[in-house]
């Protein structure tokens, strides 16, 4: 800090406190709502103090779900979300790291072409090519499968670029020393490159886990069978139905449970999260 300005310091803290409150407010209201019984919402205003129905609400949602909205238990939906998030994160990391390895450490015909094919996927977010991608997945018979849920989201130019960047900063001599030490390409990858990229992998994993967990449109399209619902899309199906007959406590309980895992990941692994965020966008 350049000079002492008590007023500016006060202003800074005031802005921050206000920011924290604005950020926390919706969550607070949602959580409070989830602790009330359905009748508490008929009075005309959202309650702002905790109710006594929390155990009941969460217990019912986790074990039974909401039959009226065709919703399976949240425990199943969260399990599906977990499968999707882990598959997408691990799958993306796995295929990106090996393709980056091929691009950086080998020279082969059509290497340039392969690089550009991967590169242009950057320009094709799923929302843009949604309908034709859906048709492809449908024609491959992958609707309502975990494969259909995850594989189309697995290719990622961003992760490939990240690993390419990481590999380029690893000194050439390390690979040369390994070659002289008798390590072939696979051994070098496994013994040297992978352990050296641990931190980058962990950081990327945090980002991709959140990305995977929060997928919405894609699961909405490819799952019609409730047993494959994920919680983030499930919440919407539920909200659609309850418009006429608001069961806010259940919706908000679902919202809290839907955001809990990724938020916990961010808070507990903040360092890795920040590293991952900044690396993937640089």
């Amino acid at each position: 800090m350049v000079e002492k300005r008590p007023f500016l310091n006060f202003l800074a803290h005031a802005v921050l406190v206000l920011g924290v409150l604005i950020v926390a407010f919706p969550i607070y209201v949602a959580f409070i709502a989830s602790t009330h019984g359905p009748t508490d919402f008929l009075s005309g205003l959202i309650p702002l103090t905790p109710g006594d129905n929390m155990v009941n609400t969460y217990g019912k949602m986790m074990t039974d779900g909401m039959a009226s909205a065709g919703m399976p238990p949240l425990s199943l939906q969260m399990f599906n979300s977990l499968i999707m998030a882990l598959t997408i994160a691990i799958g993306k990391i796995a295929i990106s790291i090996i393709s980056a390895y091929a691009i950086v450490y080998f020279r082969f015909p059509f290497r340039g072409l392969a690089f550009w094919l991967i590169f242009i996927t950057l320009m094709l977010p799923v929302e843009v090519r949604i309908l034709p991608t859906y048709h492809v997945v449908a024609s491959l018979g992958m609707l309502d499968t975990y494969a259909g849920l995850t594989i189309p989201l697995i290719a990622s130019a961003t992760a490939t670029f990240l690993f390419r960047q990481v590999f380029l900063t690893i000194p050439d001599e390390l690979m040369e020393a390994a070659r002289i030490d008798g390590a072939g390409p696979l051994k070098f990858f496994w013994d040297i490159l992978l352990p050296m990229s641990r931190n980058n992998i962990a950081a990327l994993f945090v980002i991709l886990f959140i990305y995977g967990w929060n997928q919405y449109l894609w699961p909405l399209l490819v799952t019609t069978d409730p047993s494959h619902y994920t919680i983030v899309m499930g919440i919407k199906r539920m909200a659609d139905v309850v418009d006429s007959q608001p069961q806010w406590n259940y919706i908000m309980a679902t919202a809290i449970l839907a955001m809990l895992p990724p938020v916990l990941v961010v808070i507990l692994m903040q360092k890795l999260f920040v590293k991952g965020l900044i690396e993937t966008e640089k």
Binding site: Y216, I235, V266
Partner: peptide, 9 residues
């Protein structure tokens, strides 16, 4: 942490 909350939520 709001970054981690799904846009749908």
């Amino acid at each position: 942490w709001p970054y981690a909350v799904a846009p749908a939520v």
